[in-house]
Nucleic acid binder design. Structure first.
Length: 570
RNA sequence: UGGGGUGUCGCCAAGUUGGUAAGGCACAAGGUUUUGAUCCUUGCAUGCGUUGGUUCGAGUCCAGCCACCCCAGCCA
């Protein structure tokens, strides 16, 4: 649709292309840690990495950054793969795992040790913190900082052999304990963790840290542009230090490069601002908490900003990709209005979703002058502007249902729907007039006695204009369905705001409303799971991919239609 | 009090080598309409955090302020 907007990352790539820095190559990667489900913030990164590769004739790898097995699992790997495929992106070659580089990573660690650039530190985690100093005061050197290469080699070998318990030792890069950048104060690059790894099993009792593994993984995959979010900006000096300290030829040799060594160029890390959207939270920790503590029904709850949640809600891959393009990529942190996301899905569904009628809150209508034994079949187009989408049939009969909100005994100003004595057009059918209201003991209308004008099918009545059009379904031939009305998960624009004690205090208690006994037109009986429709005058809905069955069809409301009446009526 | 960043319309976001502020969302007003939807038209920053400076001319260069974000995991 809209071409990707220009952004600073594309400028950098274009400059690199122009200068021949990478001999015309563009290689990116999307590197999720499999410790949770992907959310729409990840979609921004996915669209960026895959999108940029695609538009410059490059490739994008999918690499699981699986260096912390205690928090990771195969379930997350599976969901992440499924979400990326659903978005419509194709990674280059096989899926990569940082864990498949463990052997090489270990080799490089030995190289650093031999070069006197890394050492085994025996400080406890608490001591290490103390030695690190603070933001404003320099750290102190570890007492083990000047161990001999031989001793370091021996200790590191024994770490690998599993001789020590967790936390007993660590391997640290020897950089500068007085650096104003805390990441450069001899960062830990390997720690002891006796944990089974989901990919490598029991083969390793030590695992590399992100900063160490990530840059080398990028180099091994010949990544040209390593795109990540702003919080890693302070890590860039370390990213560069590690790659520049390692022997370039050995990096080249370990990599999958098919080019000569002299053309081998180290990857460059470039940071961009992560995506934030109002009325939701985006941190994995919080999303996980909402799931594990039961505030929502799983990672794919339609109220979640996860990709699987949005999918179940009825969002399409196209709409999410368009949204990401529209939101843009920059270095300033902002909060995108959720209205922009909603615009994107309405825009896509308006052109692609078949129209249908479904009465959410049924109010019976009896047409007193329509013969009880009569029935006719009306044919309505599935889309007002796209004939290729075909048409569907709806039986019309004496007894119908309309939505309770489409009737007011005493109409407010500018009301165009049905009221006592007034006329309204039934969508695709006749003009009817309400003659009588039947109420229950509480005074609420339970049935409307109306009369129809037989001369108004497909033509406007003579001498008067009927402004309102409402949707309806036949009483007998309609299908009972369940409709889940979703609203925003949080009722505060920024649940993370300092003024809020706990983001969970902002949870919207009305974020899910289950409507049973809704009446859908018969054509909806065969609706396939995940298929989306516009329920005319109500919004866009999709068949729930998990809970819907032929016996009990379940629709999720994706988003309402824009509603200028709501603004007028308050 | 250290280091690294960011500040262009209510919200995102373009602004090549300084030359006289794109676009989208939202909003507002009209038009079309058997969805108060869609669609169409129009409007919406003498202003680019702020104060000075350089210049014929600065959002773009310089200096000083101010505000906000990130960093002290053997997490990523």
């Amino acid at each position: 649709m809209t071409p990707p907007a220009s952004n600073f990352i594309r400028h950098i790539i274009e400059q690199d292309l122009a200068s021949g820095k990478h001999k015309g190559r563009v290689q990116t990667r999307f590197p999720p840690e499999p410790n949770g489900y992907l959310h729409i913030g990840h979609a921004k990164s996915i669209c960026l990495n895959f999108g940029v590769a695609e538009s410059y004739d490059g490739q994008c790898n999918l690499r699981f950054d699986d260096t912390n097995p205690a928090k990771e699992s195969q379930e997350f790997i599976n969901s992440i793969k499924a979400d990326i495929e659903w978005l419509g992106f194709h990674w280059s070659g096989d899926i990569r795992y940082a864990s498949s580089y463990f052997e090489a990573l270990h080799e490089f660690a030995l190289q650093l040790i031999r070069a006197g650039k890394a050492y085994v530190c025996s400080l406890s985690p608490d001591e290490a913190r103390e030695y690190r100093g603070t933001l404003t005061s320099p750290g102190r050197e570890s007492p083990n900082r000047n161990r001999s290469v031989e001793e370091n080699l021996d200790l590191f070998a024994r770490m690998r052999a599993g001789e020590f318990p967790d936390g007993a030792h660590s391997l640290r890069a020897k950089i500068d304990m007085a650096s104003p950048n805390i990441n450069m104060r001899d960062p830990v690059i390997y720690r002891i963790r006796h944990v089974v790894h989901h990919q490598t099993g029991n083969t390793w009792p030590i695992y590399p840290m992100y900063d160490y593994a990530h840059c080398i993984s990028d180099a091994m995959e010949c990544i040209t542009h390593s795109l990540c979010t702003l919080e890693f900006e302070d890590h860039r000096p370390l990213y560069d230090w590690i790659l520049q300290t390692l022997d370039k030829d050995s990096l080249h040799a370990a990599s999958n490069s098919t080019q000569p060594a002299e053309d081998y160029v180290l990857p460059r890390q470039i940071e961009f601002a992560r995506l934030n959207i109002n009325y939701t939270v985006m941190s994995k920790r919080k999303l996980k908490e909402l799931v594990t503590e039961g505030y929502v029904n799983g990672w794919d709850d339609p109220r979640m900003p996860t990709l699987s949640g949005l999918r179940r809600r009825g969002y399409t891959p196209e709409s999410i990709r368009n949204f990401c393009d529209r939101a843009g990529v920059a270095r300033s942190e902002g909060v995108v209005d959720v209205a922009m996301l909603e615009h994107s899905i309405r825009e896509h569904l308006d052109t692609t979703a078949p129209r249908a009628m479904c009465v959410l809150r049924p109010l019976k209508v009896t047409l007193s002058n329509y013969p009880a034994d009569q029935q006719e079949t009306l044919v309505l187009p599935c889309h007002p502007k796209d004939e290729s989408m075909g048409s569907r049939e709806i039986p019309f009969a004496r007894e119908l249902y309309i939505d309770a909100s489409d009737f007011e005994e005493v109409p407010p100003p500018k009301y165009k729907r049905l009221s006592l004595g007034a006329e309204v057009r039934l969508r695709g059918g006749y003009v009817i007039r309400c003659d009588e209201v039947v109420k229950d003991a509480n005074g609420t209308p339970v049935e409307l006695i109306c009369s129809y004008d037989p001369a108004t099918l497909g033509v406007n009545p003579e001498g008067r204009k009927v402004a309102g059009v409402i949707h309806w379904v036949p009483a007998d031939a309609s299908v009972d369905v369940e409709v889940r009305i979703y609203d925003r998960l949080f009722n505060k624009e920024n649940p993370d705001d300092k003024s809020v004690a706990d983001y969970k205090d902002c949870l919207n208690p009305d974020s899910l409303q289950v409507l049973s006994g809704c009446k859908a037109e018969p054509s909806l009986r065969m609706a396939a799971p995940e298929s989306g429709f516009q329920f005319e005058r109500e919004g866009y809905f999709c068949v729930d991919r998990y809970d819907s069955t032929p016996d009990r069809i379940v629709f999720n409301r994706t988003v309402t239609l824009r509603d200028s009446w709501a603004k007028i009526s308050g």
